[in-house]
């Protein structure tokens, strides 16, 4: 539990920092060093032709069949996680909800979608309420182990049990990037979960405009 507590503290303490000013630097040299350390060269248009995504067929939280295409014709933010996750999912799911609100304010509707990596515990009656506490438009997807594995393979997702919590429930390590898909389910780009809401909204807007 001590270890889990450290992880939770690390993640939860960090959330507000991404939305606020961050740390004070002791002096100008330290501040400049940080700026230099974290600055990137101008983007050069280097490639990103990762072969991700594709056609799939899963089941949403209502029990309806759901493909990679969004039924409402919206862009999609896709994440792989599980309802009981207290680690990265507790950061990524609210982040996706905030991005959905942010893009909507810019006139771009987007559906946040989570594919479960823990179908045994993420049953239909668990999945819907757990996700919709983050956002009313959240879609949860599950399926048979075979169906889910096909989708994991499409996005090169791996999962492994790190340890079991005191109740015996598994705690997973799993892929944590968020994928931007268009309305048809075509992969557009990947979004690291360390990005700010504003930055994600900006990226989504750039794809919506193109």
């Amino acid at each position: 539990m001590k270890r889990a507590g450290l992880l939770a503290a690390c993640l939860t303490l960090s959330v507000p920092a991404l939305a606020h000013d961050g740390v004070d630097h002791a002096n100008k040299a330290e501040a400049q060093a940080h700026e230099n350390a974290t600055a990137l060269p101008p983007p050069s248009g280097l490639p990103f032709n990762l072969d991700l995504g594709g056609a799939f067929e899963l089941t949403d939280q209502t029990g309806a069949s759901r493909s990679e295409a969004d039924p409402e014709g919206r862009f999609q933010l896709l994440f792989f996680g599980y309802a009981n996750c207290e680690a990265i999912c507790s950061v990524a799911l609210p982040l996706m909800a905030d991005v959905a609100d942010g893009t909507k304010a810019n006139g771009v509707d987007i559906t946040p979608v989570m594919v479960t990596i823990d179908p045994e515990r993420d049953t239909l009656d668990i999945l819907g309420p757990a996700l919709q506490q983050h956002h009313e438009d959240f879609t949860g997807l599950t399926g048979t182990p075979e169906e889910l594995q096909e989708v994991y393979d499409l996005f090169q997702i791996e999962k492994s049990v790190v340890f079991e919590d005191p109740s015996g429930a598994p705690v997973y390590a799993h892929g944590s990037f968020i994928y931007l898909l268009d309305a048809k389910g075509q992969f557009l780009t990947v979004l690291p979960p360390i990005l700010s809401v504003d930055r994600m909204v900006e990226i989504v807007a750039s794809y919506a405009a193109s």
Partner: peptide, 21 residues
């Protein structure tokens, strides 16, 4: 010297349409 982390993140994630190529 506040805001440097956010500035750094902004620099890291600076948008360029050409990066989508």
């Amino acid at each position: 010297m506040r805001s440097l982390p956010l500035m750094a993140i902004a620099a890291l994630l600076a948008f360029s349409p050409t990066a989508q190529a």
